[in-house]
Simulated assay, not measured.
Amino acid sequence: MSLTSNPVLVSAVLSAVLLFTGTVWLWPRLARRSLRAVGGRIGLLLGTQVALFAAVGLAANQSFGFYASWADLFGQEKDQGVVVDHPPGGGPLEVVGSRRVPGAGGAPPRTGGRIQQVDIVGRTTHIASPAYVYLPPEYFQPRYRTHRFPTAVVLTGYPGTASALVDKLHYPRTALELSRAGRAKPMILVMLRPTVAPPRDTECVDIPGGPQTESFFAKDLPDALRTHYRVAQKPGGLGIIGNSTGGYCALKIALHHPDVYGAGAGLSPYFKAPIDATTGDLFQGDKALRNHADLLWFLAHRPAPDTSLLVSSSKVGEKDYRDTLRFIERVRDTGRTRISSIILESGGHNFNTWRREIPAALEWMSGRLSGP
């Protein structure tokens, strides 16, 4: 039976109930001080606890889609994502069911690159956010001293931590390996979280009377990068990529600001900002602002921007699969905005799935950014 099937969840719940009932029923018989009685008590308590945690974990997994299968849960899903381009037109899409760079060793910056931890302060929005900046080896090599490098802004999900992009998702290591293999240009990576006003989830929205998060990513961040690093000056030299909430932000910012970002990639994204306890009222009742943040509405009612987009999902394990196919078709209908996808057969909403997609996504990003 599959990890997400109802029979597995029901079995776990029944096991927890039966073990709890058995513990209550048998406890008087195990009240002696013999080794056998003590072992029985330990076994019943341990079994009940394990069954209870399994039931809660399975229920949470069904609700939030962290893992799609047993193989996904135990880290055995290894198939790498493959980018597929979707030209305009065509038939409907298939729907199936509902520091030093890690891995560089002790190499000096000219060989292994460097990661800098910085604080980015928005000149116009006055938003401040910590970030990690990966500079590739070529950045320090004499023959590239006048070059400006293609740059990708990398966003976590919510709440997320910027360090997870380095330690868990291995963005710098992957970029270094792709460059060494000749599959991608040397790129600067600017890694941060979209949560710029913690603990509030601002969904990269310019909130009336609140944090101007979209403006921070669309104006202040690019300005700060151009001031302090040799990043490409043209729009085609800057891209943005993220997972989950960061994926929604990446797609939205690329769509809204094609003059700044030449490409946007969303891994397991959603396509409109939620309103919940973590966000508060993002739009203050402003329907026009809410529509503007809905990517499907935007594509249907606004001129199609000249930019390239990438989305990823899984046929089994991701709740956004159908919405992702709708988004692809909506983009194709514009005839102007370009769309590509990575669709896995199976993969949940978790780091293991995104690690399988990141190499192909960075290679795709490199192919759409100008640079040396």
Rank of each mutant, 00 (worst) to 15 (best):
E77M: 05
V153Y: 09
S340V: 09
R183I: 07
P186A: 08
F66I: 09
G65Q: 13
S366F: 09
N350Q: 06
V196T: 13
M191R: 00
A181H: 09
R29P: 04
W354L: 07
A277Y: 02
V260K: 04
T213S: 13
L362C: 14
G246H: 10
P28Q: 05
T213A: 15
V205D: 06
L255R: 00
Y134H: 03
S15H: 02
S98F: 10
S308N: 11
S312K: 00
K185Y: 04
A218V: 09
T151Q: 04
A277I: 04
D85S: 10
V316N: 15
E177W: 03
P258G: 01
Y67N: 10
S98Y: 13
Y139M: 08
L14G: 12
R143K: 12
D167L: 09
K319E: 05
G39L: 08
R193E: 12
Y158C: 02
S179A: 12
L178T: 14
D119C: 03
W27G: 02
V331C: 07
D320E: 15
G347M: 08
T213Y: 01
E214T: 00
N291H: 06
L44Y: 13
A218P: 00
L45A: 15
V331K: 03
A131C: 09
V153N: 06
Y67T: 09
P235G: 06
W354Q: 14
Q80C: 04
D167G: 07
T324Y: 10
R123K: 14
S163H: 09
T334Y: 13
P108A: 14
I343L: 04
P172E: 00
P258F: 00
Y134Q: 05
S215E: 03
G160F: 02
Q212R: 12
L344M: 10
P372W: 13
G112K: 07
L267Q: 14
A37M: 01
T278Y: 10
P269T: 05
A254Q: 12
W70L: 09
A224C: 10
L169W: 08
V166F: 10
T279D: 08
Y321K: 02
K315W: 10
L46E: 14
G122Y: 15
Y144T: 05
A107Y: 03
I120R: 01
Y270P: 02
R143G: 02
G113V: 02
G239Q: 11
A360G: 13
L18F: 15
D85P: 04
D259A: 11
Q141E: 07
G280T: 12
P28Y: 03
L73A: 08
L14C: 13
V166M: 08
V95Q: 03
A60T: 03
W25N: 09
H86Q: 04
S340W: 06
R41W: 07
E138I: 01
I342V: 15
V83R: 13
T307V: 15
P136T: 11
S268K: 08
P87V: 01
L93Y: 01
L225R: 01
